[in-house]
Computed example of a mutant assay.
Amino acid sequence: MSKITIRPATTHDARWLLKLYQQTIRTVNRKDYNKIQVNCWAPLDMEIEVFERYIDLKQPFVATDGERIVGYSDVQPDGLIDHFYCHHKSQGQGVGRALMNVIHEKANEMALPKLYSFVSITAKPFYLHFGFDIVRENEANVRGVGLKNLLMEKEIG
């Protein structure tokens, strides 16, 4: 993998973010969630407009390896990390670390006291590695199906 760079997402990235989102959930998260949960979480018929709105509202940033998007994330004004996804073929290659470093930089710029996220069972070890603590177990309702996740947070300020 060549050097990972981070840049703001644009609406032109929506199709790639949607595809990355679906592929990651359907491959990486599949080990911790059943087929019904995965299909509700990342339906194949999800409209591109969902990700265009996400980009407009949440202002995510993308990790690229040359021209290819290999991950994306965001951090919101209250410290919420809403999305954090790395391409299934780029796991363990520094993409997540690069994204988490940018999250921490932005959190410091915004003088946030803490970061928090509703983390999948799959991502729990990654967040623990970066100093997040488990606050509580959570059950999200996604298109009528329950998905267990964890509310995790990290004091930073």
Rank of each mutant, 00 (worst) to 15 (best):
T10A: 07
G94I: 01
P113R: 15
Q76K: 09
E67N: 13
I69Y: 01
L147V: 12
G157Y: 12
W41M: 14
I6Q: 02
T10Q: 08
F84G: 02
I156T: 11
R143T: 00
I36Y: 03
S73V: 03
G92Y: 02
Y21E: 07
I103E: 08
E49P: 08
K124N: 06
K19A: 12
K89G: 03
P43S: 13
K19V: 10
P113T: 12
Q37F: 05
K19F: 08
R143F: 04
A63K: 06
A140V: 00
K89H: 13
L150Q: 00
G96D: 06
K31V: 15
V75A: 10
F61Q: 06
S120A: 10
K114Q: 13
K106C: 00
K35Q: 15
F118S: 09
A140N: 14
D45K: 15
M100C: 07
T64K: 04
V70N: 04
T122R: 04
N34T: 01
Q37D: 03
D74P: 15
R26F: 04
D74M: 04
F61K: 06
N34K: 07
E67S: 11
L150A: 00
E137K: 11
R97H: 10
C86N: 10
K19H: 14
A123K: 05
N101I: 13
G71N: 04
E155I: 15
T122A: 03
T24Y: 05
D74T: 07
Y116W: 14
F51A: 00
D45G: 14
A111L: 11
V145E: 14
Q76S: 12
Q76R: 13
T64N: 00
G92D: 03
M46N: 12
F130K: 05
L150M: 03
G144Q: 12
K35I: 15
A140T: 02
P77A: 11
V75R: 07
L115A: 10
Y33D: 15
Q76D: 12
G96W: 02
G144K: 12
G71I: 11
G71W: 09
E52F: 03
P60V: 04
N101E: 10
P77W: 11
S73I: 01
